[in-house]
Nucleic acid binder design. Sequence first.
DNA 1: CGGAATCCAGTAGGATACTG
DNA 2: CAGTATCCTACTGGATTCCG
Lengths: 134, 134
Amino acid sequence: MNNSVSDRLSENHADMSSFKPLPLNGICTRLGDKWTVLIIWRLNIAGNRRLRFSALKREVEGITQRMLTLTLRRLERDGLVKRHYFPEIPPRVEYEITNLGKSMLHALEAVNLWIRENLPHVEESRRVYDSNER
Amino acid sequence: MNNSVSDRLSENHADMSSFKPLPLNGICTRLGDKWTVLIIWRLNIAGNRRLRFSALKREVEGITQRMLTLTLRRLERDGLVKRHYFPEIPPRVEYEITNLGKSMLHALEAVNLWIRENLPHVEESRRVYDSNER
DNA sequence: CGGAATCCAGTAGGATACTG
DNA sequence: CAGTATCCTACTGGATTCCG
């Protein structure tokens, strides 16, 4: 079986030179936007339970209806979230994270950990930089 | 010794519910911008060798002088990159990735791998979505 | 309830010209 | 060489209103 890619992902930093850079084709941009990670993170916590549109709106702090709709549509389009529509009156719509979405969040765990561990260093560096220069 | 945080980062997906979401405090946004990852990635490949401004400009495809300067300044401010200035004539400036920068790229390896493995699925999902709806 | 449509302000980033 | 300064455009995202 072929796992040459993961083989090259070793502990050895120098081996990273064999990797091409991250393809900045929209996914990376998506990860950096304001709401994507917060929404899919919330859906991931829910696990296999689905969340209604209104529930997400309540629980993702500060998001507007417009941005929630936009972000969910993009997530659905990318296959990271599944949308279940029930044409009742009033309508009911439920959202659920997909396996693909779960795997993406899994890949983000290391980044999450890095931020939690290194944000203080970054902030200290900013303080020093801002006091010296300017 | 205290490693409770990494303890909770297990293989078990359900445990992720105990994590607070990624703090979207500028770093995440930074990762999603157009040039940050490409630049620091290039510096990381160089390892402990430094790269001149002009070398980065040549090798980071399509970047403008302005964006290279801006992005390098932010990376320096965050402590991810070190700037070495030699006041000669003409001036010479060399950039070098820091250990903090290396550790951040290390945390990004899983994301890089995920994209390389799952981008086809995302693109297929987009094709289906765009043909069905609209 | 779950949007869609419209308007608007702020910002990211490109192109270009100038400089110590 | 390694920037800085300026202008300009496109896009992101907030606020608000309307709708089935």
